[in-house]
Design a protein around this nucleic acid. Structure first.
Lengths: 225, 225, 225, 225
DNA sequence: AATGAATGAGTTTTCATTCAT
DNA sequence: TATGAATGAAAACTCATTCAT
């Protein structure tokens, strides 16, 4: 690995690049698992998609399920990377919150495969997340980041309602995730084209409004009515 | 023949009751499909659960996929039945809305299988809902019921924000559905026991608060801040 | 049978006419067996075609294979009936022979199902003809009829070549039967539409010419060349 | 690897010879299909005959029907190979024709499986010949070869009757093929042992006589009588 | 005489995985 | 590292036949 590590494309070129093959396999696997779920995915299809020999998959990942775990873990890592890149601490609380909600929505919008993977993993009772402490660790920081924004909001006086950061994350995720997670059944049931750009953008606006409205109004407001 | 003619099921009885067998098969199938998804479910397991011969399933439903369609359709019908039983028109708008949100939450809480089925159906792009116009028809009334409550709320002055009934249904569904749909991954990720009764009840309260807060505050409220 | 034998259509009419149902079953079975062979035919399809309950077939015929035997036997009986109706003894030998050849050809032309049935029976080594002495008996007369025509032909001087009646029957059958038996493969192989009326009629003429030419020229004719 | 590199099959040897396994599968399949037809043949029996794992059949051929197609195609190719080996152009027309008829007869005599396969394929309306252009192409040359012999016969003055080469091929095939195709039913019907060597040889002689007689006598011969 | 329900034993096909090189 | 060949176990589905009425 260290010896042949960098480019150095000899006559036979791009062959014998184990890392690349691994990545290609993971990518192909993500597509397959997202499209068909763990049990619906076919090892044959994955390796065909990746353009590699079947045995190579076993060589790299051991078996189908381990490959699935790797795919899942990577999906969560990718998502958290995006969240960390937001740099929310650099802006006013309300803006930060709006940005975070918008990003959450856009993330699922552009990573539908993530939704499918996570849904399927819930079908399996999150059994494959067991081995991965990475995922858990990464979410501790997320909790903190949201907490910080909230605190700043309270300090600024822009947020009125005290909420648990994780609860808030739930709210934001629910609203963002569900739209894409259930887009097909909902489109059929209500006979609407929810995949239309216009519909999606409208929904994003509404989701931001819901969350902000919630944060910006103290509980008493309602009870007083 | 003349003696046992009527549904008087004697001691051994329960034989030759095709309708019952059909129902038992559907029930067993719902369990299996909810647990393992369409591709993960095993016909053998379904018929074993139902205690019938495998061929009977084919005799009644044609094939695995058709059985799945029937299960799915029935799941939606059952859900809609519950919604219709709420009789929301008989109470003040705010109470009606609170009741509806609470019911939506409790429905998924007590019908986790519904969540699994619908998630899996989304994985299949809602392809199996194609043939069922029943499901679509039943949701037209739902749209009307929500619309009525909203209108009454505006008239009563209790609701301030104008929203599309279907959008509102989305909001309520998102918040209710996601909690249970993603309960396993979320529990792992945040290392919390989201299945605990206390956590669930707390979340229900918050969801009701979110939705009501949204409806009861006009958009300007936020912008003015 | 004797009591309810004739029409007497009571209130419920055409129901309860066992003989008719038997015939309908046999007819449907003939279609199915001719189309798919013994092993390819489906009991379900047969009874559906006949519009009767499956169990009725078992009630009447015992099992699929016995039904097949009945169908086969009936097919041979029908064919022999036609041959007997020709009344070849009433006309000059050459005309009789021409008529017989023509009839043989037309029979398979119009009874393609016979061809399929017989082919399939040969696949089964004629095992199902075992029980049926009827078929064998009926062909003894056929042998005689052909023999008579031949003898008259020799006496009239129109036929020159002495042949065994059964051999001749083979020749005629071969030429007639093969055309329709192999019409699909041959059409494909030689890229011709052998099912066209024109092609069929032309072939009939040639077959008659072949057989007559053979009978009307003594063996020496060839050797002399 | 370097030591056993060449096809030097040592004592245990014969492993890992995919081509051979393919051939063995095809051979076993030909037996099975010829004995039981497409629908009557059992994949299990085929692979047992070939001594290979069942899945290997699917690995090589895709499914039962595709295997059937390959078997059928190969059967036709083998037959055509034999015909090409006759080298008819090297001998006088009459001898060539006699040789061709004799060969045609002997071919079916020694390749009864061919007969069964072709019969079964006709049952399926030659549907499986669709994809194989090979078969069709190979028969174009056959048509030419027969045409050449005929032309030479006319030139030599030995053949008097002008016939279409394909029609003649039909005549020869009919007479040869039918005898073996229908040998079981005919044996039963006429209570003769048509499988006896003597009977077969006698029939071959007669078939040659029929065809030659036909070719060597102009149509007028009959009409004049 | 007639029927809908039910079944056991197959039959094709699929699939993840391992072998041999 | 890489691959084509090979496999056992299971899966969906089929089919002739019988049961109960």
């Amino acid at each position: 690995m260290t010896i042949q590590s960098n480019p150095k494309p000899t006559s036979e070129a791009r062959k014998r690049d184990p890392e690349k093959r691994r990545r290609e396999l993971l990518l192909a696997a993500r597509h397959e698992f997202a499209e068909h779920g763990l049990s619906g995915a076919r090892v044959d299809d994955i390796v065909n998609r990746a353009g590699v020999n079947k045995q190579l998959m076993y060589y790299y990942f051991g078996d189908k399920e381990s490959l699935y775990e790797k795919v899942l873990e990577q999906a969560y890592i990718d998502k958290r990377k995006g969240e960390d890149d937001l740099e929310l601490s650099a802006m006013p609380a309300r803006d930060a919150m709006e940005k975070f909600i918008g990003y959450s929505f856009e993330f699922v919008r552009q990573n539908r495969e993530f939704v499918s993977l996570v849904n399927d993993e819930n079908l399996h009772l999150a059994r494959h997340l067991e081995g991965s402490s990475v995922v858990q660790k990464r979410h501790v920081t997320l909790e903190k980041v949201i907490g910080d924004v909230l605190e700043r909001g309270y300090a600024e006086g822009v947020f009125k309602r005290r909420v648990d950061p994780v609860d808030l994350y739930f709210t934001i995720s629910s609203l963002s995730y569900f739209y894409f997670s259930n887009i097909h059944t909902m489109s059929k049931i209500f006979n609407r084209d929810l995949s239309a750009k216009k519909a999606i953008n409208k929904r994003r606006g509404e989701i931001i409004a819901i969350v902000l409205s919630y944060l910006m109004h103290a509980p008493e407001d309602i009870d007083q009515v």
